[in-house]
Design a protein around this nucleic acid. Structure first.
Lengths: 330, 330
DNA sequence: CTGAAAGCGCTAACAT
DNA sequence: ATGTTAGCGCTTTCAG
């Protein structure tokens, strides 16, 4: 028997009341050493395990965290969760991992349900945006941290500096002698429809860099069918061109395409990715990319969230360092 | 205000008792239409949301599932979770995703804790094994499904037929004219230490195939440092050789190594993977591998588990089909 | 030192 | 049609 026995049964068996059992089980004062020993022994023998539901209900905390993420297609989110879960578990929290599929409605629903379940804290990569959403989040009165898309300066956020990262990438390309950039960021098409803060910040970084490099020209690919657009564009390229992708996934996809009518990378065209996903070590040519420790984001999210739960006022903005990894594709 | 208001408060506000509120909220009979409307309106206005803890405690179900997995390093487990979560959510379940890191002790602890939290069901890829463990699982009196390593014929299990898959792979290699196989399965080293049923089954498949192919010879690499072993072995290979990996990850790792002192694949040596992870479409040469729909496993696990929860007696063994994907590495 | 009672938020059986 | 009571498993206050 593992789960069925309750503190009440221990009380009966020991001929005491549940209050006393509680004192014994939780090392509370006001109990004779002998009684405590007797109760603990009985509990041990019966294989007693305290019921979390009962405890949670009376204590007002569930030792449960919620994490909302888009999906598991991009491996960085799996890694992020891995790190998040590690820290959470070290602090005694279990975590609900739920997927929003980048659907605003689904995200809203999930948040509601997680609150109904009284999670002690919530980590999310928001797809919703705007004042109404933010005030909804505040009304939950639950500690929240965000990653990826930012939704409010008043909610702690852990991520990299996207703006600077792209800016540095462009500068790096300029230093390598490139004169034209194909900037690939399909999410931009959703501007105004959903929260695309990450691509937006990166786009700002792009513009800032271009401003400082008058001789550098640029074409932006913002549509889902960016591959098609790219193929159409290729023949017309005269200047020395590099493709800057806002995700390694895009870069890999393009690298694959470029092998059809063999276009040599980096001789004929340069290419650079973003995220430094683990799989890169297996592709050729080795992809130059922007690297950052996604695990550090996951850990930091968990730590920040738990601190908030413990009532500590935390820095609303944690920036994880990034760096360009120079490899063979540029 | 989102979370704070209770059925008691609605009762007070409407001048009725909590029993009546419950009847209104849950469409139960025995209530005047007018009263119901009044209560529902009040609930709506106050933004009432039923508390899951209270409900769970009295109903004896939490609408929560637990999923235990090794880690998030191999993308197949992320995909599996993705599919599992989808189905679970469709049925109103949230799921705790916890990592065991292939540590028997951690797995035990997690299971205990998940039971304390009264999950309605549990999906796991066991790293423990043996009678004691199985009877422990039964004592939880909680519906359980396993995937990956099997632990008992009495616990529903969803996976592929590993034995056949490897057998077919070997036959395929023979048909391609290979005369020697390097079989790469590092987990085999843990034989007797932990549950390695998957690699064991595959190994059985290997042996069965070899039995039918007297002219085929084979070397087994079962150590963690299989890369080092492989490198030492390469020069001595005289027969036409293929490397059979029990995971695409191993295959990719080896493919990378073979580029150092350039060894041509498949001209000088063939190589084959297992799992058909998504990233394969980006590597060269395209890797021949064993494919199966990992999402189908995830979905089936969730469905099987939920059926069990609903009291349906389910088939203890669900076998997901697999197939060899012929590509360029063999 | 221990018992008795109340309550967390909800549902369900039994009265009225 | 509605109110009353009891209870899920636990903690906590207040008596004794």
């Amino acid at each position: 028997m593992l789960n069925k026995i309750t503190s009440k049964q221990i009380a009966e068996q020991c001929g005491v009341t549940r209050g006393t059992v509680d004192r014994a089980l939780n090392n509370r004062p006001g109990i004779k050493a002998e009684t405590r020993a007797r109760i603990l022994k009985a509990a041990e023998e019966l294989g007693y395990r305290p019921d979390y539901l009962g405890q949670s209900l009376v204590k007002g905390e569930t030792k449960t965290l919620g994490m909302l993420t888009f999906d598991m297609h991009n491996p960085i989110f799996a890694q992020l969760y891995h790190a998040f879960e590690d820290v959470a578990r070290q602090h005694g929290y279990f975590v609900y991992l739920a997927l929003t599929h980048k659907d605003k409605h689904v995200e809203q629903l999930h948040i509601h349900h997680l609150m109904d379940r009284r999670v002690d804290g919530l980590a999310l990569n928001p797809i919703n945006e705007g004042e109404a959403f933010v005030s909804f989040l505040h009304q939950t009165r639950t500690p929240i941290v965000t990653y990826g898309n930012r939704v409010s300066r008043h909610i702690p956020h852990v991520w990299i500096n996207d703006q600077r990262a792209v800016q540095e990438a462009v500068q790096y390309m300029a230093a390598k002698g490139y004169q034209h950039i194909l900037y690939v960021s399909p999410p931009l098409q959703y501007e105004g429809t959903e929260n695309i803060d990450v691509p937006k910040q990166r786009y700002v970084g792009l513009q800032a860099a271009l401003q400082q490099l008058p001789s550098m020209s640029c074409t932006v690919l913002r549509e889902k069918h960016y591959i098609k657009d790219l193929i159409e564009l290729l023949p017309s390229l005269s200047k020395k061109t590099a493709i800057l992708c806002t995700s390694d996934i895009f870069a890999l996809e393009i690298l694959k395409i470029l092998k059809q009518p063999y276009i040599s990378v980096p001789d004929q065209i340069g290419i650079m990715g973003f995220d430094n996903i683990g799989m890169l070590e297996y592709v050729e040519p080795a992809l130059t990319t922007v690297d950052y420790t996604i695990e550090e984001i996951g850990r930091s999210l968990a730590e920040t969230l738990i601190q908030q739960i413990q009532g500590v006022q935390v820095n609303a903005d944690i920036v994880i360092p990034h760096r360009i990894i120079e490899r063979a594709s540029l």
